[in-house]
Computed example of a mutant assay.
Amino acid sequence: MADTINREERIPETMIGMRFDQACAEIFSDYSRERLKHWIKTGVLTLDGAAVKPREKVYGGERLSLNAELEEEVSHGPEDIEFEIVFEDDDVLVINKDHGMVVHPGAGNHDGTLLNAILHHCPGNSMLPRAGIVHRLDKDTSGLMVVAKSLTAQTELAEQLQARTVSREYDAVVTGVMTAGGTVDAPIGRHPKDRKRQAVTHSGKLAITHYRVVERFRGHTHVRCKLETGRTHQIRVHMAHQRYPLVGDPVYGGRFKLPPGASDPLKELLRQFPRQALHARRLAFIHPITGKEVEFRAEMPGDMLVLIDYLKEDIAR
């Protein structure tokens, strides 16, 4: 017998006036729009128990009910790509992603992604939305990610993310010398002029980043950032908003700066640093099946360790 999806959600009042299919896409964001469109059309995704047209307006407070058979969700093929597994059991897979690896196939990246690698390692994940990927990291951000291996685990982990009970901490090296840590509470949304970028904007979604100083250098700072929310490019946007952009960030890094009097090796390293200096170092969540809290750590990769070593040597000169 095929597995079934049984989920009920309430439409928040913030969606008043939105179309039914648009509200479904926001609330059931794990599933593709085509899949949701099919479920609405076939009447397995209902509004207050009734099948309605996609363009029906919602007013907030209505009950969304999804009762559907689990079918193959992923159209991309498996590929035998090596990746580092930190932990695995029957329900979850924790990965230490290399920088340079794209998580989801997309324009210009149709294969060679983490999703393709997961489908090879866990063939059954083709039945799960996004192959079980619960959250993502940017291509050039390294570090820890959790992937679900069952629909039950994926639903539970998605709910933990929404409830902000998943703990995610990052190492970052920023340009500029911070005097102290703090919190950035600034909404993030699409940049008004560049749709490929994110920006702090009044019309954006709630975004909160806590950060603390680990070590100061002459022109840079090693910081630890803890996410309370998980918006696209959140740490990169928030640090740039604070005027401390990440070293090597090609999108939000601003005008390239070298600290006055820096050594030639440091100057060369900063010029050549190939990516934003950001690494997901710690991940903690409640195991979706056992109910026990689990915690994982991944040390900074070599390129960031070398960067910090050079910054330390620059101080000692």
Rank of each mutant, 00 (worst) to 15 (best):
M145P: 07
T155A: 15
V147W: 02
N125I: 05
K149D: 06
T165D: 12
A153S: 15
C122P: 00
V166D: 10
A153K: 01
S142N: 03
H135N: 11
L157I: 13
E156H: 07
M145N: 12
S142L: 06
L144C: 09
L151H: 11
R164C: 08
A163Y: 07
A153N: 03
T165N: 12
L128H: 03
A117R: 01
Q160M: 11
T152E: 14
R130M: 07
Q162M: 07
A163V: 02
V146E: 06
L128C: 06
A117Y: 02
H120T: 00
L157D: 08
V147Y: 01
V166G: 00
C122I: 15
L144S: 07
L157Q: 00
D138I: 14
G143M: 06
T155H: 13
K149I: 11
K139P: 09
I118V: 14
A153D: 02
T152G: 08
M127Q: 15
M127C: 03
A131G: 15
A131Y: 04
H135M: 07
V166F: 04
L157F: 03
L119N: 08
V147P: 00
E156D: 13
Q160I: 11
L157C: 04
V134M: 04
I118D: 02
R130K: 13
R136V: 12
H120G: 04
L157Y: 00
V166L: 09
P123G: 10
E159A: 15
N116R: 07
E159V: 07
E156I: 10
S142R: 05
P123L: 04
N116M: 03
V134T: 13
I133W: 04
A148T: 08
L157K: 00
I118P: 02
L161C: 10
V166N: 05
V134Y: 01
M127T: 12
D140C: 06
V166R: 09
R130C: 05
A163C: 00
K139N: 11
Q154V: 13
P129G: 11
L161Y: 15
Q154D: 03
I133V: 14
I118S: 04
A117E: 06
A153W: 01
P123D: 07
V134I: 15
M145D: 10
M127P: 00
K149N: 02
T152P: 00
Q160F: 04
H121T: 13
L161I: 14
Q162F: 02
H120A: 10
Q162Y: 05
I118T: 07
D138A: 12
V166Y: 08
V146F: 06
T152M: 10
S126G: 06
R130A: 03
R130Q: 09
D138V: 13
Q162W: 04
T165A: 02
Q154C: 10
N116Q: 06
R164W: 01
L151I: 13
P123E: 07
L128R: 04
A153V: 12
R164F: 09
K149W: 02
G124Q: 15
K149F: 03
A153Y: 00
